[in-house]
C-alpha cells in the first residue's frame, strides 16, 4: 500500500529543469524581446531575412508579421508537447512544428496578399531556417508553460517586426525617396541607390548596430557619473 501512496507524490513534484528561465511577469516576458534581448539588434539572430527583405517597408513588415505568427504558434505547441518529446529527438520535433507553422504562414500570405508573397519569394519558407525560432524553442518555450511561451514568442516577434520595420523604412526613405510607395520628396530628390542593393543591407544593419553600441556606452558612462 505504501508503494501506491508514494508513487503519486513522486510524480507530482515537477522535474528539475536545468537552465530554466527565471520567473517573470508576462509583461516582462513580452518586453524582453522588444528591448534588452532584441533578436535583431542585440542577439543578431535571424539575419538572413533581416537584410534580404528590408529594402522596402511593406516587405520588412510582412516578414516581421509572418515571423511573429510562426514564433507564437510554434512556442505554444513546443511548450504544450514539452513533457512528451524525448530528449534525443527534440530538435527534429521542434523543426517539424516550426515547419508546419511556416507552411501555414506561406499559404495564408499567398492567399491574402499575393503581391507581397511574390516579392518575398523563397524567404517565407526560409523562416524555417531562421535560428531565432529554433533558439527560442530550445532556450525558452521547451522549459516553461504555454502562456509564458506565447508571451515570449509575441515579444520576440514584436521586437523582430519593429527592428525590421525601422531598418526597412531607413532604406526605403533614403534609397527610393518613398515610404510605403508614397513619394516623400520632390522631383529633385536623388535616391541613394546603394541602400537598395545588397551591400546597403549590411551597411544599414552595421550602422544600426553602431548606434545601439553607442547608446549602451553612453548610458554606462552616465550611470558611472551619477554614482
Amino acid at each position: 500500500m505504501t508503494a501506491v501512496a508514494t508513487a503519486p507524490t513522486k510524480a507530482d513534484t515537477p522535474p528539475f529543469e536545468p537552465g530554466a528561465p527565471p520567473p517573470a511577469t508576462l509583461i516582462q516576458d513580452i518586453w524582453r524581446g522588444i528591448g534588452k534581448e532584441n533578436p535583431v539588434l542585440v542577439q543578431f539572430l535571424g539575419m538572413c531575412p533581416t537584410m534580404a527583405v528590408t529594402n522596402i517597408l511593406a516587405n520588412g513588415f510582412a516578414m516581421g508579421v509572418a515571423t511573429t505568427f510562426v514564433l507564437t504558434g510554434s512556442g505554444l505547441f513546443v511548450s504544450l508537447f514539452r513533457k512528451y518529446v524525448a530528449h534525443e529527438v527534440r530538435i527534429t520535433s521542434y523543426i517539424l512544428i516550426i515547419a508546419t507553422f511556416v507552411t501555414l504562414a506561406d499559404l495564408l500570405l499567398a492567399a491574402s496578399f499575393p503581391d507581397i508573397s511574390k516579392a518575398l519569394g523563397p524567404f517565407i519558407p526560409l523562416i524555417v531556417a531562421n535560428c531565432l525560432l529554433l533558439g527560442r524553442a530550445e532556450a525558452f518555450a521547451a522549459k516553461v508553460g504555454p502562456v509564458r511561451a506565447v508571451a515570449d514568442g509575441l515579444g520576440m516577434g514584436l521586437g523582430f517586426t519593429l527592428s525590421l520595420s525601422a531598418l526597412a523604412s531607413f532604406r526605403e526613405i533614403l534609397g527610393r525617396g518613398t515610404l510605403l510607395g508614397h513619394p516623400l520628396f520632390g522631383p529633385r530628390f536623388e535616391p541613394w541607390v546603394f541602400l537598395m542593393m545588397p551591400p546597403g543591407g549590411f551597411f544599414t544593419l552595421g550602422v544600426a548596430c553602431l548606434v545601439v553600441a553607442f547608446a549602451i556606452e553612453w548610458r554606462k558612462k552616465h550611470a558611472v557619473r551619477r554614482v
Binding site: 543578431f44 551591400p199 546597403g200 549590411f202 551597411f203 552595421g206 548596430c209 553602431l210 553600441a213 553607442f214
Partner: peptide, 13 residues
C-alpha cells in the same frame, strides 16, 4: 562601439 558586430558588418558591406 565597433568592437562587437559593427565592424564586422561594415567589412561585410
Amino acid at each position: 562601439v565597433a568592437r562587437r558586430m559593427g565592424l564586422v558588418l561594415v567589412i561585410a558591406s
